[in-house]
Design a protein around this nucleic acid. Structure first.
Length: 520
RNA sequence: GGUGCUAUCGUCUAGUGGCCUAGGACAACGGCCUCUCACGCCGUAAACCCCGGUUCGAGUCCGGGUAGCACUACCA
């Protein structure tokens, strides 16, 4: 059967979207685009207790920032969902689930259960490995053990209940996974999963995701590996509904692991090791916490996408840098690795560097301008001639400096000296490069440069190098002292690039001012 | 405990029985370039979890161990 490829990303609004979830969304998106299919976004808010305000809006914004487009369901231009299969928020689909819960009840695939959470808890405590299944349901309070009258009565008077899936033991269930091949389990190990809870009149994930995927004509379920153990249960559910012929294909993605040690990457790891695990900064209204985001940390969305794409997927070649279009073209589920990937934050920085140096000087300078202006305003130097002169040459400055930074914000740390004369000097540089003869060298150099009207790099270079040769000074010694006077440290681009930006007046000013400060 | 998944340099990975004296990238280290820092270039160190089997030949196939992870809720 040839059906149009339809995939979905189905997060629950319980907080910021974890970076692992972002990768799941990305792989779904790549798969959909590659196959000319649809990418849906469905909100799985069937747990009323864990709902966090703002989380849904956050998810939409995050995907939008990253360029992961949504064709159907909840998205930026349709916050309440668009498409013929709505609503796309599970809490708004209650009537739909009622129909299917009833169908399972009527066909004998499900039953009512009245055991309270407390009763189940104590049962678990007394019997170590208690499982609600074919062996134990006979001793529990449910519509299989209670007389029909009493069941009716209990429901009638408003007793809380759940509906459980009746798992038949002795069956072997196989799930074909696109990444892992066939996975087979025995139905005996499955418990009678809760499908619906009367307390909040909502289904659980297991029921809702099957019903919705069926109704929304989803063809491929691409989700995290943590769902693999319950995939056979989902197959059983499709069978119980009689939908096996249109059951989606499954692909379970490997987990994102913490950089050190083992285990799933968590927010705590990010806090502990100093990197974000969320795409955007998130202010959690529920617990008052603020979480860092890649966007606010200065990452380009393309870099985050590229980095994430390669964490668990790789082409057969050596290519590392991919545009979204290239990823769409190259991606394939059978090249997704089976094992978990440790989160390598250092490589993430490198990706950002790669995208940064590919920006044009104009693009980059417009990103940097607000930062530079803010820093100058903070120190009260925004209106100085030096600052204004540098600001006017921002694209050029950015072009000189971009090779040595990973983030736009780091440009300030590297290029600050263009905007204001040094008042402090890097101790190590001075110790190593400021020699006994340096004051004399700088004095002579100042006098020499004062005479020059041609301020071009070529001319200055020939004049200064000629003078150094004539006096038999060491080139490195003179030039480094020169650099320290202009920059305040032994760093930065070629010295004539610096004098070029600074201009004659500012160069001479710094030479004199720094000499005074350094000989004090 | 039970069930399932997984296993190549520190990390992400290439590898689908001979092209593997195991390739690339990040990180590390050394050198070159050079007035400094960076870039760039060159180079170094660095891995097939273990044991059996199949085969003329195994990182690659099979079995068994071991280890790690996931799941085991009226959470998703």
């Amino acid at each position: 059967m040839d059906r149009k490829v339809r995939v979905r990303f189905a997060p629950s609004p319980t907080g910021a979207l974890h970076i692992g979830g972002v990768r799941t969304a990305l792989y779904n998106y790549l798969f959909a685009r590659q196959n000319g299919g649809d990418m849906l976004l469905r909100i799985e808010d069937t747990d009323s207790n864990r709902f966090v305000p703002g989380a849904e809006q956050y998810i939409i914004e995050a995907l939008d920032w990253l360029g992961i487009g949504i064709d159907e369901g909840i998205c930026k231009d349709a916050p309440d969902g668009k498409g013929p299969h709505g609503p796309y928020r599970q809490s708004e689909r209650r009537e739909i689930y009622h129909v299917y819960v009833k169908q399972l009840l009527d066909s004998g695939h499900a039953y009512y259960a009245f055991d309270t959470p407390e009763e189940l808890d104590s049962k678990r405590k007394e019997t170590g490995n208690f499982q609600y299944d074919a062996h134990t349901r006979g001793e529990m309070a449910n519509s299989l053990t209670l007389p029909a009258d009493e069941v009716r009565q209990r429901i009638g008077r408003g007793d809380q209940y759940v509906v459980r899936f009746k798992i038949e033991p002795g069956e072997s269930v196989t799930v074909h996974d696109l990444i892992r091949g066939d996975v087979t389990i025995q139905s005996d190990i499955l418990d009678d999963k809760v499908l619906y809870k009367s307390a909040d009149d909502l289904p659980t994930y297991h029921l809702a995701n099957i019903v919705d995927d069926h109704l929304m004509e989803v063809t491929h379920v691409i989700r995290g590996e943590e769902w693999l153990p319950s995939a056979p249960l989902h197959v059983l559910l499709y069978r119980a509904f009689g939908w096996e012929d249109t059951m989606p294909q499954f692909a379970h993605l490997p987990l994102l692991l913490k950089p050190d040690g083992n285990g799933k990457l968590s927010k705590r790891d990010g806090d502990r090791l100093g990197f974000p695990v969320f795409p955007l900064e998130f202010h959690n209204e529920k617990d008052g916490t603020v979480s860092r985001g890649y966007r606010e940390d200065g990452y380009f969305p393309e870099a985050v996408i590229n980095f994430l794409a390669l964490l668990g997927w790789h082409s057969s070649g050596d290519q590392e840098i991919y545009t979204m279009d290239e990823l769409i073209h190259e991606f394939s589920l059978d090249r997704v690795s089976k094992s978990g990937a440790k989160f390598d934050y250092e490589k993430g920085k490198w990706f950002n560097h790669q995208y940064l140096i590919r920006k044009t000087d104009d693009e980059l300078s417009e990103l940097f301008r607000p930062i530079a202006e803010m820093r100058l305003r903070e120190s009260g130097q925004l209106d100085t001639p030096a600052a204004q002169r540098a600001l006017a040459q921002l694209p050029h400055i950015v072009g000189l400096m971009k090779e040595r930074v990973n983030f736009v914000s780091e440009l300030w740390e590297q290029a600050d000296f263009f905007f204001a004369a040094p008042t402090q000097f890097d101790e190590k540089s001075v110790q190593k490069r400021w020699k006994e003869d340096s004051p004399r060298h700088i004095q002579e150099l100042t006098a020499l440069l004062e005479q020059e009207d041609d301020w071009s790099a070529e001319h200055l270079d020939s004049v200064v190098m000629g003078w150094i040769a004539e006096k038999e000074y060491g080139t490195g010694i003179v030039m480094n002292a020169f650099r320290i006077c202009l920059v305040g440290a032994a760093r930065g681009p070629h010295i004539w690039e610096i004098t070029n930006v600074l201009g004659k007046e500012e160069t001479l000013l710094r030479l004199r001012q720094s000499l005074t400060l350094l000989t004090k």
